[in-house]
Design a protein around this nucleic acid. Structure first.
Lengths: 117, 117
DNA sequence: TGTTCATATGCACAGCTATACATATGAAAA
DNA sequence: TTTTCATATGTATAGCTGTGCATATGAACA
């Protein structure tokens, strides 16, 4: 049963469509990819990452540096942790956060470079 | 008047905070940066970009290749156009879209590479 | 001019997200 | 043990976003 027979658009270059379809990445990979990009798509998270780019910081220092609510920072740090973009170590009552790896640094650098155009 | 005197957290390493603050990117740049990343943070837009990665396509071909509503595709293409991630040429009734430049390709490649880890 | 058809867009809405308040947790110090 | 304090998290909510329907636009053609 061809859905196309009922209500589909007819201008389609079927060869082109088939070719592109065969080359497209798997749906699941694209969803993961989108989720990753989405994490960078928020100013607060970006500020956190950018602050940690320079040095390790505890939550309250981040809160002060970004002039943001402690709860807000904590919530966003949880998301960043969930995506393995930051790592942390506990020392007494404090928790010190830092960037997970060089990969994260590179993405920030690339983005900044692009935004400056 | 120091807001800090009223309700602020006291654990702050003032030197660290000042140092980071001085190195932080401008607020406006960070917002633009976040907006750019956000565009890549949606599966449909990513699919469109990924499809165009391989070849120029008209709207209805994109619609067929992604198995998505024509309206949805058009709406997302508008956003992509707004961020100069795609370019287009009109030919009769059709509109052919393609990736704006090599930069877009590179970001997709980098993202895919990272998602595959 | 009128019709057809590809694309664009106004609008409504469901689902999501970032934020902040209140509170819990858990470590250190009293 | 009790208090203090940094951090985490449950919850509520305002604002945003992606989608699809209905319709507008505008080009080709009859």
């Amino acid at each position: 049963m061809k859905i196309d027979d009922i209500c589909e658009i007819v201008c389609t270059d079927e060869k082109a469509v088939a070719e592109v379809k065969s080359k497209m990445l798997d749906e699941n990979i694209l969803i993961i990819l989108a989720e990753n990009f989405k994490i960078f798509g928020d100013p607060t998270r970006l500020k956190i990452l950018q602050a940690l780019y320079h040095r390790e910081l505890c939550v309250c220092d981040l809160s002060a540096a970004l002039d943001a609510n402690q709860s807000t920072i904590s919530h966003q740090l949880r998301l960043l942790r969930g995506k393995n973009l930051v790592k942390f170590r506990k020392q007494g009552k404090m928790t010190y956060y830092s960037l997970a790896d060089e990969h994260v640094k590179k993405i920030i650098e690339l983005g900044v470079e692009h935004a400056r155009e």
